[in-house]
Amino acid sequence: MAEWKMICRVEDVPRLGSRVVKSAAGDIAVFRTSTDEVFALRDACPHKGGPLSQGLVHGTQVTCPLHGWRLHLDSGEAVAPDVGCARRYSSKVEGGAVFLEI
């Protein structure tokens, strides 16, 4: 059963940056946008498995560090014309803390 788990404080993730969360289900990348929205995706690009947590965040997208695929943070879908999807995890911020549903 998935449940909400506290991960860190919002400020632990840099604006327009990301962190890796080690979990039993594998690595999860947590992103923070310039407007302090927080998103989480499985830390593997659908293209060749690149660690998305090492990418560059812009708008509500991240660019994979290996071959430059762009993915939508809110859905995990690749930006067209590329096709693919990284698993998305529900996330929320409450009282300045970041929670993931895992």
Partner: peptide, 19 residues
């Protein structure tokens, strides 16, 4: 601005294909 640097320059090491 470290957030405006691609990963290699941000981490000060070269990322390889296996991460």
């Amino acid at each position: 601005d470290p957030r405006s640097r691609l990963i290699n320059e941000r981490a000060h090491a070269n990322i390889q294909k296996d991460g």
